[in-house]
């Protein structure tokens, strides 16, 4: 999203015309820091050297007060879509043509506040609002369809009045196409891009393994993981 889909400028953080990004699944902050560093927002070395340490701006969940490059402070699940809805409402009512993006996990859409905001976004015709959902089908301790039945998931969003795009979340070409096919920001229907993903993709011992939802890598695991990724690349 930072590399292709969003119009942002790391040299001009408060440009009113910029696209906004709300990381609703705040626990993925480290991924956002890195991708934003690649885009030129932050210093990669600083993230790696200070992450989670006393005084660092780079914590487990993003804080806009400590790190002004991020749009909002997030972490508690189910908060991102209401926040993004408010930001999109401002853009829409101001007649501006930027978009507001948010990224949610599928698990967090169990939170009622997500569906409250889905209603509000539809009711207020927020065509400038785009929600990406990491549909990895895993919660922390279970697989989503085993204990929490989200399906028919795309239909739920359609029933809430949203435009639904379904993609393979690991297919960069498909993701680019999804960005290219977004309705115009001044249109009236919010869009959800449901990204079919596999948690731990490419690391054989992590794929779809609940134990690695929040696992920590030791040196041996790291070597195995890197080898597995290299093997996958070679095969592809």
């Amino acid at each position: 999203m930072f590399q292709y889909g969003m119009h942002v400028d790391p040299q001009d953080l408060r440009n009113p015309e910029r696209d906004r990004f709300v990381l609703s699944k705040g626990h993925a902050a480290v991924c956002m820091y890195i991708t934003m560093a690649i885009r030129g927002f932050f210093d990669y070395r600083e993230i790696v050297d200070t992450y989670g340490q006393l005084g660092s701006a780079y914590g487990m969940h993003p804080c806009k007060v400590q790190l002004p490059g991020v749009e909002v402070s997030t972490g508690s699940l189910g908060h991102g879509l209401p926040l993004a809805t408010g930001m999109a409402l401002h853009g829409k009512r101001s007649g501006m043509d930027h978009r507001v993006f948010t990224l949610m996990g599928d698990g967090e859409t169990g939170e009622g506040s997500v569906w409250e905001a889905a209603l509000a976004a539809h009711s207020n015709n927020l065509g400038n609002l785009v929600a990406f959902i990491d549909r990895n089908r895993q919660l922390m301790t279970s697989f989503s369809e085993e204990r929490v039945k989200l399906e028919p998931y795309p239909d739920k969003w359609r029933a809430f009045g949203w435009n639904v795009i379904e993609v393979d979340g690991h297919d960069m070409a498909a993701l680019v196409q999804a960005f290219d096919s977004l309705p115009a920001p001044d249109s009236d229907v919010p869009t959800v891009v449901i990204c079919d993903t596999v948690k731990g993709k490419g690391v054989d011992f992590m794929e779809r393994n609940l134990a690695w939802h929040a696992g920590s890598l030791n040196d041996t695991d790291l070597a195995r993981a890197l080898a597995s990724l290299a093997h996958g690349r070679k095969a592809a």
């Binding site: 926040l83 809805t85 930001m87 506040s113 409250e116």
Partner: peptide, 15 residues
């Protein structure tokens, strides 16, 4: 929807 109402207000304040 009180939760969304407050969250949306925060999004507006953010702007």
């Amino acid at each position: 929807s009180e939760q969304a109402c407050v969250g949306i207000a925060a999004g507006l304040a953010n702007e």
